[in-house]
Every structure is written in C-alpha cells, then in structure tokens.
Computed example of a mutant assay.
Amino acid sequence: MIIERRQALAGLIATSLPWPLEAARLTDPKAYAAVALQLAARSVERAPDRAAARAQMLKMIEEVGVKLRSSAIFIQQYGGSPVKLAVLPEYLLTSYPGRISIAEFAAKAALEVDGPEYDAFGKIAAAQKLFIAGNAYEVDKHFPGLYFQTSFVVSPSGEVVLRYRRLNSMFAPTPHDVLSKYLDIYGLDGVFPVARTEIGNLAAIASEEIVYPEIARAHALRGAEIFLHSSSEIGSPTDTHKAIAKRARAFENLAYVISANTAGIEGTTMPLASADGNSMVVDWKGNVLAESNAGETFTAFADIDLAGLRAARRKPGMTNYLARQRTALFAAAYGAAKGQAADGLIDGNQVRIPDRDYFLRVQEQTIERLAKDGLI
C-alpha cells in the first residue's frame, strides 16, 4: 500500500500536464498589486499558558490589519494598482518553537483549523477586499499531539481557500512523516494544493522549501501561477541560497514568487534583526520587481501581470521551460531514490510523537545509508 502511494506521488512528475486545461479558460483579472509585508514575528515562548498565547496572537492579528490597510492605501497612492494580495512572513504569530516539546508547543501555540485566528484574518480580508497569505503552526484532529507548519490563504469572502502543510522541515513533523495516513485522508490535492481564484492560481511554499525545486515544480504542474513564500531568513546584501532560489523557482516554472521575510523576531534571546530584510516580488522571468531593505516595511510590492504570464506559458519557445519539461524521464529515478523515507512517525496504524532530536537522528541515518550505497 505504501509503495503504491509513493508510485502515485512519483507519477505526478510523469503524468501531470504543464497546467490544467481549465486554467487556459480563466479570464485574466484586472491589474492588481501584491505586497510582501515585512513584519517582525513575535514569540509566544514567554506567554504563561495557552490563553495568554491566544490573546497575544489575536492582538497581533489586529495590528497586522491596521498596518496592512495603511500600506495598501500608500501603495495605491504611490501609483500602484489596488492591492489584492498580501503575503505575511513565516510563523508571524508565534516565532519558531525552539526546544519546547512537540506536544507542548502543539497545545500552547498551534492554531486550530476552525480557530478564532483564522476568523480574525477572514474579517480583515473581507473588510479590505484582498487575499491574505500567511503561515502558522496548526494542529489536526487526525494527528493528535502533532502540529504541522501550515501556509494558508484567506480570501475576500473571509474563507480559508488554501491550506498547505510544509513537506520538508528540519526540526518539525510534516505530512511526509505520516504520508500514508495523510494521503488516505487528504489525497494528493491535500499534499500539493492549488487555489484557483479570481487573482490567479495560488500555491504556497514554506520557508527553506524554496531551495527544493521539486516542491515548486509539483505545484506548477498542478496549475500554480503565483508562489506565496512565507519565510524567516537571514537577510544579506549578497545573494543567499534562498535569494538565488526565489529567482530560479520563478523563471523555471514561469511563475511569480511573492516572498515575505520577517523583520526580526521579538521576544527571544536571539538578536532581533537576525532574520530580517530582503522580502521581494519576482516575476516569471526571474526579475526582482521590488525588494525591501531591513525593518518593518511594505516596500516589496509590484503589479501582477497575470495576462503576460499566461501568454508566456502558452507561447512556444526556448524560454518556455515549463512546457519543455519532459517529466516522464525522471519518474523512475525519483521513485528509486533512497532519500529520507516516508512514514517515519507511523508505527503500525499508530502515529507517535517524536522528541526534538528525532529529526536530526533521521538525517544522520539517511546520510549514513547514502554514503554506504556510494551515492554521496
């Protein structure tokens, strides 16, 4: 059964169309602006309990709404189009878990799928008539005791229209760690979700996942046109791995990348500006249209030319890398690859809760196996 599910995932690469046929019939939206809103994340580590953590997060969402409204007004007055899409940084409401145990952090800080935080974001999206993309830790009733890092999109209707769980993480559970059960519940659409909206086909990429081309490509093969990248990373005047990857993921998939970084992290022992700066908007040619400096700012904003992107995807030529991709060539190689194994947190039919060091041990074992096989 597990082998069959893995073959189904590998088959995604071999059989998916470069974009779904229905996407070609979409009406191109009117011009609009997207903004990567660079804000400081706020740790809940010092909150004494779940109620205090929840109160802090709801207060912060209220502050985000005020900053977003002011930013959108200035962007349009500056000469831009109406803001219809805002991307927020990674784990904005809580910061990273640190050494807090998996179960403790899930109980204290992870959002619930139908929790008040999403309702609060929904009210802001509805009032300001825009899509809000964010990132938070979230619990799932099917996997008690665990949490997943979740990228989400709330539409102007106030509803969550996209929920993507990070697939590659160094120190946290992912759907890959419980893949067989996750596929049984959510199917492939739940692993690589794409939201078809009036502002384009949206997909999320979380944090350092931007350096893994397969994740962006899997979304693109399912129709994604705009990658929403919530991140918390080191900013630098020189190109970092993530900065290079953002441009690569854009042009190789003919897709926009809207990347929002934190403006530092408040409430931890780490220096405030350790993860600060370089939020950006990248077009489908890999050009950086706008990029922020350090600090809280809305300056990474740009108009989205979706009609131009769609025209480029449908035009034969050497730079149409998405249409030129020969996916069937790679299915067997990916299927036979001996990377990190799926279902590491499933014992029989039971899901187990790992300690924090589990993830490092798994990587060490994977490296040892690859070295033994002469692959690295």
Rank of each mutant, 00 (worst) to 15 (best):
E4S: 15
I73Y: 04
F359K: 03
R6F: 14
E233W: 01
F74N: 11
A302W: 05
I353P: 06
P175Y: 06
P82V: 00
F359Q: 05
L130D: 08
A136M: 11
V160G: 03
S180W: 04
Y321K: 01
D114M: 06
V154D: 06
I13S: 07
R324I: 02
Y256M: 11
V351M: 04
M57K: 14
S157Q: 07
A224H: 03
A110N: 07
R50W: 04
E159I: 00
E112G: 15
E62C: 00
I376A: 13
R217K: 05
M1G: 07
T297N: 03
I199S: 13
E209K: 06
L228Q: 07
M170V: 13
R6K: 15
A216R: 00
G344W: 02
Y32M: 14
I61V: 10
A51T: 11
L309E: 13
N253A: 05
V161C: 15
A109M: 06
A8P: 07
E368D: 13
I215R: 02
I13T: 10
R99Y: 06
R313W: 06
A250Y: 02
S71G: 12
K30E: 15
V66Q: 14
S169C: 14
L21K: 10
A243G: 12
E112M: 13
N253S: 08
L21A: 15
R361E: 14
R314G: 14
Q325Y: 15
I215W: 08
K129L: 07
N349W: 01
Q128R: 10
I199V: 15
P97Y: 09
F105D: 08
I2L: 10
H219K: 08
K108P: 09
R165S: 01
P173H: 03
G11M: 09
N261C: 00
A133W: 01
E22Q: 11
A371Y: 15
G286A: 06
S231K: 00
R5T: 13
T366A: 00
Y186A: 01
L370K: 13
F105I: 02
R165M: 01
F105K: 00
R25D: 12
L39H: 06
P175Q: 07
R310Q: 07
R361P: 01
P29G: 12
V362W: 05
V83H: 05
Y358M: 09
S232W: 00
A220Y: 03
I210C: 00
T94Q: 04
A125L: 01
V113D: 14
T319G: 05
